[in-house]
Design a protein around this nucleic acid. Structure first.
Length: 197
DNA sequence: ATAGAGATTGCCT
DNA sequence: GGCAATCTCTATA
């Protein structure tokens, strides 16, 4: 088992900052490949985190969160946007890391075609909905194994060092009524221009 | 059955 | 800064 495999068995709060500077790649042949470096994430713990989709148990939408770690959880929200997560914790225990922002690496022309309203490169994938649009991720990608070589989406360690400085703070868009709303479970690469805010 | 909120984005004032 | 767009899920009746 690879380092990533073992890492992803852990608590999302531990895993999340360790995913910074890892790479998300969509598509097989280089000509169609689109990729970006992860620069912002949030941890969702599951059973003890009322902000997590898995808090009330499995449903058709969140079922992948209860499956094996290292798979992609993609959900549809606000009637128009997709968001993608890396599933954590052993099979049977829910947990995930929401990918909130990427620094574009490859396939920028394709990203611009999918996001015609992005004026600057930093508008391409600087948000959870934006990056799914830029990468072409939708519900058909729900459950894909990110660590299998043959998958349509992969999570890679390209050898880049961890960020020199990681910042953290409360998660975005969480109702302040929830018990875990103020936990500092959002992590980002300090100073990166692609961070969502 | 119906209503309201939601892990968002982009346009308008 | 405010708000519409528009689907899914949850809570309440």
């Amino acid at each position: 088992l690879s380092l990533l495999h073992r890492l992803l068995e852990d608590d999302p709060v531990v895993v999340a900052p360790l995913l910074l500077n890892k790479v998300l790649v969509v598509g097989g042949v280089p000509a169609e490949r689109v990729s970006g470096r992860i620069v912002e994430v949030e941890a969702y713990r599951g059973a003890d985190d009322p902000a997590s989709h898995a808090f009330r148990g499995p449903t058709p939408r969140n079922l992948v969160m209860f499956g094996p770690p290292g798979h992609l959880y993609v959900y549809f929200t606000y009637g128009m946007h997709y968001c993608c997560n890396v599933v954590c914790r052993p099979e049977g225990t829910a947990g995930a890391v929401l990918v909130r922002a990427l620094a574009p690496l490859a396939g920028l022309d394709e990203m611009r075609r999918r996001r015609p309203r992005a004026r600057l490169d930093r508008d391409l994938s600087s948000g959870p909905g934006k990056l799914c649009q830029a990468l072409g991720l939708d519900r058909t990608f729900d459950g894909v194994d990110l660590l299998a070589a043959s998958s349509r989406v992969r999570l890679l360690d390209d050898g880049t060092a961890p960020p020199a400085a990681v910042a953290s703070g409360p998660r975005i868009g969480i109702s302040t009524q929830l018990a875990t709303a103020f936990e500092p479970w959002r992590f980002w690469v300090a100073g990166d221009p692609n961070v969502s805010r």
